[in-house]
């Protein structure tokens, strides 16, 4: 190869612009795709791991809970309120007119067996645990639960009645495995 050939090679009119664009776009495209896949798999490590997901159901034996008593169990790291409601409590819950409610839901739609109310014990305002599970607790103006953080009152169906919380206490997915055992999750 002579010096002159090299010189000629440098002339811009011998550059195949289309080929360069093609190479540039395919290379950059592949690099971006590879980077994205790598980044996504790395970010995925922060999602719940298999051992965490394996703990996502909890079975509870309801037999020891007398009428009027409550039980708090853990499910996915959160408290679950289980209340064995008295007939009085069930009646008040049922007699409440739906139109009075901030978050409209009938008591029927929130229970599988009216004797048992199962709700997630996390205030829908900012995540505090409401009072009302223990005998001496302040149960709020509606006989359900009262959240001490910002003063939300829940009724005997776990529905929001007064205060800043926007929604009723969440009903977790659960099933009656037998008459007296429920499986949450």
């Amino acid at each position: 190869m002579s010096e002159k050939d090299l010189k000629d090679k440098d002339l811009s009119d011998s550059v195949d612009e289309e080929k360069r664009d093609f190479l540039f776009i395919t290379t950059a495209g592949l690099a971006v795709a590879g980077g994205a896949v790598t980044a996504l798999s790395l970010i995925d490590t922060m999602n719940p791991a298999k051992d965490v997901l394996a703990l996502s159901t909890t079975e509870v034996d309801l037999a020891p809970i007398e009428e009027g008593q409550s039980l708090t169990v853990m499910w996915r790291g959160k408290p679950i309120f289980i209340r064995h409601r008295t007939s009085e409590e069930i009646r008040t819950a049922n007699n409440t007119s739906i139109n009075e409610l901030k978050h409209m839901a009938s008591d029927e739609s929130r229970v599988k067996n009216p004797k048992w109310l199962v709700v997630v014990g996390v205030c829908t305002h900012l995540g505090c645990v409401p009072l009302g599970q223990k005998v001496g607790d302040n149960k709020g103006e509606f006989g359900g639960w009262f959240c001490p953080c910002h003063g939300s009152h829940y009724d005997t169906s776990g529905r929001i009645r007064k205060g800043p919380a926007p929604l009723n206490l969440e009903v977790p997915p659960y099933d009656f495995v037998s008459d007296e055992i429920i499986k949450i999750g």
């Binding site: 798999s41 790395l42 995925d44 490590t45 922060m46 999602n47 791991a49 298999k50 051992d51 965490v52």
Partner: peptide, 30 residues
């Protein structure tokens, strides 16, 4: 990312690394 899953305690360190290998999503890769 590994430090988010690892536990620096003699009782738990070895198991936490095995947990990374088995349970954490793509933990083995990490």
């Amino acid at each position: 990312l590994l430090a988010m899953q690892y536990t620096a305690n003699t009782e738990m360190a070895f198991d936490s690394v095995e947990r990374i290998m088995r349970d954490v999503n793509n933990g083995w890769l990490l």
